[in-house]
Design a protein around this nucleic acid. Structure first.
Lengths: 150, 150
DNA sequence: TATATTTAAGACAATTAACTCTTAAATAAG
DNA sequence: CTTATTTAAGAGTTAATTGTCTTAAATATA
């Protein structure tokens, strides 16, 4: 799998939040229900993102999570790196520690291109822009397609 | 990680075998020693590849593993699919079962391109050709670069 | 102030991936 | 035929990921 489950959940939640108003705090319970992700598991993932100040939280009734300005301007790549770490974009495709242009593995050169393609896919647009396009095109954000962009 | 550890070990062993003569059976012990991979673990992985007739084995003294003709003509993609399965090349990047061109997720279109790039990297050349290039360019096949193409 | 709601934090459990060990079967060589 | 070598098969272990549960802290509202 390209991205871990934690990461995929985090990306879906990020896009969901980006579709909401700047100010509003969205409760994790609502998000986990709408996106069909385990509540406690999602809570953990979002804590990582708030720790990186891509999101901010507020406790108590009316509390929840929202994207920070940094988060709205962030790309999916920023979210991926915050959750899965940068290894996918730094490591050798064959897992060889010493691999580099000086002593490349058989995949080294083409992996650099492919990796750039993955990176490009994830950093082409910001979360705000993804949400805008999401609303326009009614992109899928759930398995059963029941999600409604508002 | 793009590929599982099993898969990466399998690819390195495949390339190693491709660098050897067609006829010779190479013992798993030799391979695991040279490539610094756990013997029993590597055995398991190679059993998957022999089950797919990408390799063939021979028991007893002078026994070992070698690539079949099919295996020599196979690409890394064939090896990856034999070990990790085809999911990386069939599934939605956000893990959404219903995702498709009819009801795409926000990443759907760009993931199709990116996936093609990964697939292209893995199927550009056959194992025989990789081994030939490996010998010419002395590509790395180990962490410490100690591997010697003969 | 008391209560209900919500995130924070961390322990705990289940599942999967990664790795190890043991025994059996095949076979070459003495 | 006996022994040593090697793969096959499967059980068992460890580690990482994924998912659950409980308690504490913050805070809105009555």
């Amino acid at each position: 799998m390209l991205l871990s489950k934690s990461c995929v959940y985090g990306l879906r939640a990020s896009i969901y939040l980006a579709s909401k108003s700047k100010e509003e705090f969205i409760s994790i319970k609502e998000m986990s229900g709408t996106l069909d992700i385990s509540f406690h598991f999602l809570t953990k993932i979002l804590q990582q993102l708030t720790a990186e100040s891509l999101m901010e939280s507020y406790k108590g009734p009316k509390g929840g999570i929202r994207l920070t300005t940094k988060g709205r301007d962030a790309t999916l790549l920023d979210m991926v790196i915050a959750i899965d770490g940068p290894e996918l974009f730094t490591q050798c495709a064959l897992g060889l520690p010493g691999c580099g242009s000086a002593a490349p593995c058989p995949l080294h050169e083409s992996w650099i291109d492919t990796r750039a393609s993955i990176q490009g896919m994830l950093e082409r647009t910001t979360l705000s822009e993804i949400a805008k396009e999401g609303k326009q095109n009614k992109f899928r954000l759930m398995a059963d397609g029941s999600f409604n962009w508002n």
